[in-house]
Design a protein around this nucleic acid. Sequence first.
DNA 1: GAAGAGTTGTACT
DNA 2: AGTACAACTCTTC
Length: 174
Amino acid sequence: MAKKNQKIPLTYDVFDTDMGWVALVGGDQGIVRASLPESTPETALDFVQPEVNGATHSPEDHIDARMLVTAYCAGEPVDLSDIPIDTRTATPFFRSAWDACRSIPAGETRSYGWLAEQAGNVRAARGAGQAMARNKLALLVPCHRVVSSTGALHGFGGAGLPLKSRLLSMESDR
DNA sequence: GAAGAGTTGTACT
DNA sequence: AGTACAACTCTTC
């Protein structure tokens, strides 16, 4: 008990969606880490590998999250913000940025500047971008709805860019 | 349209 | 505590 590092019991789950396999890792407070839809469950798990290490496979604990994410990937207008997320490991700025990002309605896009302003400082657009970059909650935080001020689809780590475009198209077409 | 400078925040050493 | 890095935005050529 000397350490104040409270290791909460983590549980993970992997399931197949219309877009691919998604892995979720969560604790008592909510989802701690989530992966993007991948071609194979192995890849999805690899995305959350640092968290899965030591976690227990408990699909029952993420039954609602699985249902929501599955519906979302199928094109259903579900509200992913219903899924509880645990951002205790992140800084207040990140938390605010993610919260603001979840506040963006489906089909709409906001700029990093807007996100930064919601988080506290409009000048912190770069920091806001980093908040999205370090976002561990993938689909749960609609970071794909955040674009640059000029409207260009920036960043998204490469492999996520096509997915971002696809998600935007799906939401916009809806 | 393209290039360069400026600011803020996080992570690592 | 200081340094390095980042998915930005704005001003100027």
